[in-house]
């Protein structure tokens, strides 16, 4: 292990400097555009500001109100957690299997299929919202297609019990991003592993279980974290399509927050709500990070 022997103190210090240097731009951005605003918003959450700043200091009053006198918070937490539980596994596993499918050896014309799978993700947001609204409309395309094959149409987005599954189902069309990430990850799985398994007489399933899956765990880890964090904050479908309805069945936490801030003009309370959300997201992420040691396999990583 000649490499270790040649490590000198000089090298160690160089490492330190370069470490900060390389991460420099990122750290600067973090300080300037995140820490500062975050601190400001903590103060904001302890005032009774309505528009912008300039309210009176009221301490933790907003937080008290959030936990005791706001029934919509609990509804929105339930809605959001339910949605995460449905949507994240659904979209990530779909993205993974589509990527696997498109990565099959010998498949021709994959370029076109990959592009098609990615296209729904790049339809501009405003247009996309209305397209889905029209497609899922009880008098729209989806019910039309279902009825031609004999399945009765449903109210989808306007049925309290179906709105969350409908939105999660819509999310499948957005897997283009994750699919792209999984494809990149699959490319990184060494062929030698597959060959080794084949030589030992292993089947497709063995290849998947002993080569693909372990090697993909860092990528899966990444997408799961991003998926949970992102989905906990989702609010666009509520804003553009359902407006939290019907009867609050799609009242996402993020939408409740947005409405409190920009429709009800209650900036102070909204700031408090965002901090609550931040803590929740932090907790989830910490849990996943902690359990990751047991299921994520790194080939080139050093410490964790």
């Amino acid at each position: 292990m000649g490499a270790k022997v040649s490590r000198s103190r000089k090298h160690f210090r160089r490492n330190e400097i370069y470490g900060w240097l390389f991460a420099g731009p990122a750290i600067f951005g973090f300080l300037a555009f995140t820490i500062g605003p975050m601190i400001t918003s903590i103060f904001l959450s302890m005032t009774d500001s309505t528009l912008g700043f300039g309210g009176n200091f009221i301490g933790l009053e907003h937080y008290r109100r959030a936990f005791t006198a706001d029934p919509l918070i609990w509804i929105s937490i339930r809605v959001t957690f339910t949605f995460v539980a449905i949507s994240v596994p659904l979209t990530i596993s779909t993205a993974f299997f589509v990527a696997l499918l498109l990565n099959t050896e010998g498949l021709k014309g994959v370029k076109y299929f990959r592009t098609i799978a990615y296209v729904p993700s790049i339809v501009p947001g405003v247009a996309s919202a209305f397209l889905w609204r029209w497609i899922f409309n009880p008098r729209g395309l989806l019910n039309h297609l279902l009825e031609t094959i004999g399945i009765p149409g449903q109210n989808w987005l306007f049925d309290q019990n179906l709105v969350l599954p409908s939105l999660a189902f819509m999310g499948i069309w957005g897997i283009g991003g994750n699919m792209v990430i999984f494809l990149a990850g699959l490319q990184g799985v060494p062929r030698s592993l597959y060959d080794a398994i084949e030589v030992d007489g292993g089947s497709i399933f063995s290849k998947f279980r002993y080569a693909t899956l372990p090697m993909m765990t860092p990528t899966i880890f990444f997408t799961v974290i991003m998926g949970i964090i992102g989905t906990l904050q989702v609010f666009m479908p509520a804003l553009l399509i359902t407006e939290g309805g019907p009867n609050n069945a799609s009242l996402f936490y993020g939408f409740h927050l947005y409405r409190t801030a920009f429709v009800n003009n209650n900036m102070g309370y909204a700031a408090a709500l965002s901090w609550i959300m931040f803590i929740v997201v932090l907790a989830f992420t910490a849990i996943i990070f902690a359990t990751s040691k047991h299921w994520v396999y790194y080939e080139g990583g050093d410490d964790r």
């Binding site: 990122a26 750290i27 973090f30 300037a32 555009f33 995140t34 500062g36 605003p37 975050m38 400001t40 918003s41 912008g52 991003m226 964090i229 904050q233 993020g254 927050l257 947005y258 801030a261 920009f262 909204a270 700031a271 965002s274 901090w275 959300m277 931040f278 997201v281 932090l282 992420t285």
Partner: peptide
Amino acid sequence: LLSTMMIPGFITLIPTFLI
């Protein structure tokens, strides 16, 4: 750095704009 992803966008929206 990672935790910044969890910050709801509109919380930093106005202060960042001010800067």
